[in-house]
Design a protein around this nucleic acid. Structure first.
Length: 276
DNA sequence: CATCATGTTATAAT
DNA sequence: CATTATAACATGAT
Protein backbone atom coordinates (compact mmCIF):
# COMPACT_ATOMS: atom_id res chain seq x y z
CA UNK A 1 0.00 0.00 0.00
CA UNK A 2 2.43 2.53 1.06
CA UNK A 3 3.68 5.76 -0.46
CA UNK A 4 4.97 8.64 1.62
CA UNK A 5 1.66 9.67 3.16
CA UNK A 6 0.57 6.10 3.94
CA UNK A 7 3.99 5.46 5.47
CA UNK A 8 3.62 8.54 7.64
CA UNK A 9 0.19 7.31 8.67
CA UNK A 10 1.66 3.92 9.58
CA UNK A 11 4.38 5.56 11.67
CA UNK A 12 1.75 7.46 13.61
CA UNK A 13 0.14 4.19 14.62
CA UNK A 14 3.09 3.62 16.91
CA UNK A 15 3.80 7.20 17.95
CA UNK A 16 1.33 7.21 20.88
CA UNK A 17 3.77 4.79 22.50
CA UNK A 18 6.82 7.02 22.47
CA UNK A 19 8.25 6.76 25.98
CA UNK A 20 7.09 3.19 26.48
CA UNK A 21 9.53 0.45 27.43
CA UNK A 22 9.90 -2.70 25.35
CA UNK A 23 9.22 -5.48 27.83
CA UNK A 24 9.31 -8.27 25.28
CA UNK A 25 10.04 -8.89 21.64
CA UNK A 26 8.96 -11.65 19.30
CA UNK A 27 10.19 -12.36 15.80
CA UNK A 28 9.54 -14.77 13.00
CA UNK A 29 13.24 -15.33 12.24
CA UNK A 30 12.94 -17.23 8.97
CA UNK A 31 11.03 -14.37 7.37
CA UNK A 32 12.60 -12.62 4.42
CA UNK A 33 11.96 -9.41 6.38
CA UNK A 34 15.23 -10.17 8.20
CA UNK A 35 17.44 -10.43 5.11
CA UNK A 36 19.38 -7.30 6.15
CA UNK A 37 19.39 -7.96 9.86
CA UNK A 38 19.31 -11.31 11.65
CA UNK A 39 16.26 -11.45 13.87
CA UNK A 40 18.17 -12.24 17.13
CA UNK A 41 20.02 -8.91 16.84
CA UNK A 42 16.76 -7.13 17.64
CA UNK A 43 17.01 -8.40 21.21
CA UNK A 44 19.12 -5.31 22.01
CA UNK A 45 15.83 -3.39 22.03
CA UNK A 46 14.50 -5.30 25.01
CA UNK A 47 14.40 -3.16 28.12
CA UNK A 48 14.82 0.07 26.15
CA UNK A 49 12.14 2.67 25.54
CA UNK A 50 10.90 3.83 22.18
CA UNK A 51 11.87 7.49 22.24
CA UNK A 52 10.89 9.10 18.95
CA UNK A 53 10.17 8.21 15.36
CA UNK A 54 10.22 9.83 11.95
CA UNK A 55 9.76 8.93 8.33
CA UNK A 56 11.64 9.70 5.13
CA UNK A 57 10.07 8.72 1.85
CA UNK A 58 8.88 5.16 2.34
CA UNK A 59 11.20 4.52 5.33
CA UNK A 60 10.38 4.75 9.02
CA UNK A 61 12.93 5.15 11.80
CA UNK A 62 12.18 4.30 15.44
CA UNK A 63 14.76 5.61 17.88
CA UNK A 64 15.56 3.77 21.11
CA UNK A 65 18.83 5.47 22.05
CA UNK A 66 20.92 8.27 20.52
CA UNK A 67 22.84 5.68 18.52
CA UNK A 68 20.29 2.87 18.23
CA UNK A 69 17.45 2.92 15.73
CA UNK A 70 15.09 0.40 14.19
CA UNK A 71 14.32 1.10 10.53
CA UNK A 72 11.25 -0.44 8.91
CA UNK A 73 10.25 -0.47 5.26
CA UNK A 74 6.75 -1.71 4.45
CA UNK A 75 7.46 -2.97 0.94
CA UNK A 76 4.28 -3.67 -0.99
CA UNK A 77 2.04 -5.19 1.65
CA UNK A 78 3.53 -4.30 5.03
CA UNK A 79 1.44 -2.82 7.84
CA UNK A 80 2.11 -1.46 11.29
CA UNK A 81 -0.60 -2.37 13.75
CA UNK A 82 -1.29 -1.81 17.41
CA UNK A 83 -2.72 -4.68 19.38
CA UNK A 84 -3.54 -5.42 22.98
CA UNK A 85 -0.62 -6.39 25.27
CA UNK A 86 -1.50 -10.07 24.89
CA UNK A 87 -1.99 -9.86 21.12
CA UNK A 88 -1.63 -13.36 19.64
CA UNK A 89 0.57 -13.54 16.56
CA UNK A 90 -1.22 -13.79 13.25
CA UNK A 91 0.24 -15.72 10.34
CA UNK A 92 2.24 -12.83 8.86
CA UNK A 93 3.12 -10.94 12.04
CA UNK A 94 6.91 -10.96 11.74
CA UNK A 95 7.86 -8.59 14.54
CA UNK A 96 6.07 -7.73 17.76
CA UNK A 97 7.35 -5.20 20.29
CA UNK A 98 5.53 -5.66 23.59
CA UNK A 99 4.92 -2.73 25.91
CA UNK A 100 2.83 -2.65 29.08
CA UNK A 101 0.04 -0.89 27.21
CA UNK A 102 0.11 -2.42 23.75
CA UNK A 103 1.77 -4.72 21.25
CA UNK A 104 3.42 -2.96 18.31
CA UNK A 105 3.11 -5.28 15.33
CA UNK A 106 4.78 -5.38 11.91
CA UNK A 107 2.77 -7.57 9.55
CA UNK A 108 3.69 -8.25 5.92
CA UNK A 109 2.34 -11.20 3.95
CA UNK A 110 4.40 -10.64 0.80
CA UNK A 111 7.58 -9.91 2.73
CA UNK A 112 8.95 -7.29 0.36
CA UNK A 113 9.31 -5.18 3.49
CA UNK A 114 12.38 -5.18 5.69
CA UNK A 115 13.79 -4.23 9.06
CA UNK A 116 17.26 -2.92 9.88
CA UNK A 117 19.14 -1.87 13.00
CA UNK A 118 21.36 1.21 12.97
CA UNK A 119 24.03 2.03 15.55
CA UNK A 120 24.94 5.51 14.37
CA UNK A 121 23.65 8.90 15.48
CA UNK A 122 22.02 9.75 12.16
CA UNK A 123 21.80 6.79 9.79
CA UNK A 124 19.79 8.91 7.37
CA UNK A 125 22.31 11.72 7.00
CA UNK A 126 22.99 10.92 3.35
CA UNK A 127 19.48 10.40 2.05
CA UNK A 128 18.37 12.65 -0.81
CA UNK A 129 15.94 15.46 0.06
CA UNK A 130 12.25 14.64 0.07
CA UNK A 131 9.93 16.61 -2.21
CA UNK A 132 8.49 18.45 0.80
CA UNK A 133 12.00 19.61 1.83
CA UNK A 134 13.17 23.06 0.76
CA UNK A 135 16.36 21.40 -0.51
CA UNK A 136 14.22 19.81 -3.20
CA UNK A 137 14.96 22.95 -5.16
CA UNK A 138 14.44 23.98 -8.75
CA UNK A 139 18.20 23.70 -9.23
CA UNK A 140 18.10 20.13 -7.97
CA UNK A 141 15.21 19.19 -10.25
CA UNK A 142 17.05 20.72 -13.21
CA UNK A 143 20.12 18.70 -12.37
CA UNK A 144 18.13 15.46 -12.16
CA UNK A 145 16.48 16.07 -15.54
CA UNK A 146 19.86 16.73 -17.13
CA UNK A 147 21.44 13.69 -15.55
CA UNK A 148 18.85 11.14 -16.72
CA UNK A 149 17.67 12.68 -20.00
CA UNK A 150 16.27 9.50 -21.56
CA UNK A 151 14.42 8.18 -18.57
CA UNK A 152 10.66 8.13 -18.93
CA UNK A 153 9.02 10.71 -16.66
CA UNK A 154 7.25 8.02 -14.69
CA UNK A 155 10.49 6.11 -14.08
CA UNK A 156 12.16 9.26 -12.74
CA UNK A 157 9.25 9.89 -10.38
CA UNK A 158 9.42 6.31 -9.08
CA UNK A 159 13.18 6.47 -8.44
CA UNK A 160 13.62 6.67 -4.65
CA UNK A 161 17.00 8.36 -4.99
CA UNK A 162 15.32 11.10 -6.97
CA UNK A 163 11.83 11.52 -5.56
CA UNK A 164 11.83 9.65 -2.24
CA UNK A 165 8.36 8.59 -1.15
CA UNK A 166 6.65 8.85 -4.53
CA UNK A 167 5.07 5.59 -5.68
CA UNK A 168 2.74 4.37 -8.37
CA UNK A 169 -0.38 6.37 -7.65
CA UNK A 170 1.44 9.64 -6.90
CA UNK A 171 3.51 9.28 -10.09
CA UNK A 172 0.33 8.89 -12.17
CA UNK A 173 -1.26 11.84 -10.38
CA UNK A 174 1.77 14.04 -11.13
CA UNK A 175 1.93 13.11 -14.83
CA UNK A 176 -1.80 13.75 -15.19
CA UNK A 177 -1.62 17.17 -13.55
CA UNK A 178 1.34 18.08 -15.75
CA UNK A 179 -0.59 17.08 -18.87
CA UNK A 180 2.30 14.86 -19.92
CA UNK A 181 2.32 11.26 -21.06
CA UNK A 182 4.12 9.16 -18.39
CA UNK A 183 6.52 7.79 -21.01
CA UNK A 184 7.95 11.17 -22.07
CA UNK A 185 11.75 11.30 -21.78
CA UNK A 186 12.52 13.80 -19.06
CA UNK A 187 14.71 15.88 -21.36
CA UNK A 188 11.41 17.15 -22.76
CA UNK A 189 10.00 18.08 -19.35
CA UNK A 190 10.00 21.64 -18.03
CA UNK A 191 11.60 21.59 -14.56
CA UNK A 192 9.58 24.37 -12.98
CA UNK A 193 6.07 22.91 -13.41
CA UNK A 194 7.49 19.49 -12.63
CA UNK A 195 8.80 20.62 -9.25
CA UNK A 196 5.63 22.57 -8.49
CA UNK A 197 3.42 19.57 -9.31
CA UNK A 198 5.52 17.06 -7.39
CA UNK A 199 5.23 19.30 -4.34
CA UNK A 200 1.52 19.94 -4.83
CA UNK A 201 0.76 16.22 -4.96
CA UNK A 202 3.12 15.48 -2.07
CA UNK A 203 1.63 18.11 0.24
CA UNK A 204 -1.85 17.17 -0.91
CA UNK A 205 -1.28 13.49 -0.20
CA UNK A 206 0.04 14.27 3.27
CA UNK A 207 -2.92 16.52 3.96
CA UNK A 208 -5.65 14.24 2.64
CA UNK A 209 -4.23 10.96 3.83
CA UNK A 210 -2.97 11.89 7.27
CA UNK A 211 -5.00 14.89 8.39
CA UNK A 212 -8.12 13.12 9.50
CA UNK A 213 -6.14 10.50 11.34
CA UNK A 214 -4.08 13.02 13.28
CA UNK A 215 -7.00 13.85 15.51
CA UNK A 216 -8.13 10.27 15.81
CA UNK A 217 -4.77 8.90 16.93
CA UNK A 218 -4.13 11.56 19.57
CA UNK A 219 -7.04 10.30 21.64
CA UNK A 220 -5.16 7.13 22.54
CA UNK A 221 -5.36 4.03 20.45
CA UNK A 222 -7.97 1.80 18.95
CA UNK A 223 -6.42 -1.61 18.36
CA UNK A 224 -6.29 -2.55 14.73
CA UNK A 225 -8.43 0.27 13.43
CA UNK A 226 -7.86 3.72 12.02
CA UNK A 227 -9.47 5.93 9.43
CA UNK A 228 -7.74 6.34 6.12
CA UNK A 229 -8.72 9.57 4.44
CA UNK A 230 -8.28 9.74 0.72
CA UNK A 231 -7.85 12.55 -1.85
CA UNK A 232 -11.03 14.16 -3.29
CA UNK A 233 -12.89 13.22 -6.49
CA UNK A 234 -11.07 15.93 -8.40
CA UNK A 235 -7.88 13.87 -8.13
CA UNK A 236 -6.99 11.15 -10.64
CA UNK A 237 -6.43 8.91 -7.61
CA UNK A 238 -10.18 8.38 -7.23
CA UNK A 239 -10.61 7.15 -10.80
CA UNK A 240 -7.45 5.41 -11.90
CA UNK A 241 -8.20 1.89 -10.68
CA UNK A 242 -11.88 1.80 -11.46
CA UNK A 243 -12.84 -0.24 -14.47
CA UNK A 244 -14.22 2.23 -16.98
CA UNK A 245 -12.70 5.10 -14.99
CA UNK A 246 -12.97 8.54 -16.59
CA UNK A 247 -10.59 11.49 -16.56
CA UNK A 248 -11.98 13.86 -13.89
CA UNK A 249 -11.12 16.84 -16.10
CA UNK A 250 -12.51 15.86 -19.51
CA UNK A 251 -14.40 12.58 -18.95
CA UNK A 252 -12.31 10.68 -21.50
CA UNK A 253 -11.99 6.98 -20.57
CA UNK A 254 -8.61 6.49 -18.93
CA UNK A 255 -5.93 4.56 -20.79
CA UNK A 256 -4.00 1.87 -19.02
CA UNK A 257 -0.72 0.17 -19.79
CA UNK A 258 2.58 -0.85 -18.24
CA UNK A 259 5.10 1.98 -18.17
CA UNK A 260 8.36 1.84 -16.24
CA UNK A 261 7.41 -1.71 -15.12
CA UNK A 262 4.24 -0.55 -13.38
CA UNK A 263 0.59 -0.42 -14.36
CA UNK A 264 -0.09 3.16 -15.35
CA UNK A 265 -3.34 5.03 -15.89
CA UNK A 266 -3.48 8.25 -17.91
CA UNK A 267 -5.78 10.41 -20.01
CA UNK A 268 -4.98 10.15 -23.71
CA UNK A 269 -6.72 13.47 -24.29
CA UNK A 270 -5.18 15.62 -21.52
CA UNK A 271 -1.71 14.04 -21.44
CA UNK A 272 0.43 14.71 -24.47
CA UNK A 273 3.77 13.42 -25.69
CA UNK A 274 5.69 16.56 -26.71
CA UNK A 275 8.10 16.09 -29.61
CA UNK A 276 10.78 18.35 -28.20
C1' DC B 1 -5.78 -21.88 -13.43
C1' DA B 2 -4.05 -17.12 -14.88
C1' DT B 3 -3.50 -12.40 -13.80
C1' DC B 4 -2.58 -8.65 -10.97
C1' DA B 5 -1.15 -5.97 -6.71
C1' DT B 6 0.28 2.12 -3.99
C1' DG B 7 8.01 -1.76 -4.10
C1' DT B 8 12.92 -2.64 -4.43
C1' DT B 9 17.03 -4.64 -6.24
C1' DA B 10 20.38 -7.71 -8.54
C1' DT B 11 21.80 -8.35 -12.99
C1' DA B 12 22.21 -7.45 -17.83
C1' DA B 13 22.67 -4.60 -21.80
C1' DT B 14 24.18 -0.47 -23.89
C1' DC C 1 31.99 3.81 -14.74
C1' DA C 2 27.08 5.70 -15.80
C1' DT C 3 22.53 5.11 -17.51
C1' DT C 4 18.49 2.39 -18.53
C1' DA C 5 15.65 -1.96 -18.74
C1' DT C 6 13.94 -6.19 -16.91
C1' DA C 7 13.26 -10.34 -14.02
C1' DA C 8 12.73 -11.90 -9.51
C1' DC C 9 11.15 -11.80 -4.95
C1' DA C 10 6.11 -14.21 -1.88
C1' DT C 11 1.38 -14.31 -0.97
C1' DG C 12 -3.43 -13.41 -1.57
C1' DA C 13 -7.47 -11.55 -4.10
C1' DT C 14 -10.20 -11.82 -8.20
Amino acid sequence: MPELAEVELARRQWSPFHGNRIVGLETHPAARIYRDCPAPALRVLEGLSLQTSRSHGKRMLFTFAPELHLEIHLGMSGKLLVGLPDHALHKHDHLVLRTQQASLVFNDYRMFGRVMLHDRADPWADLPPQPQDSRFSLARVRKLLARYPNKPLKALLLDQNTCPGIGNWMADEICWRLGLHPGVPVSRVDPSPLRRTIRFVTFGALKHVTEKNAGASSSGFAPGSYVTQVPPKSWLFQHRWKKGGLCPKCRTPLARDTIATRTTAWCSSCQIFPST
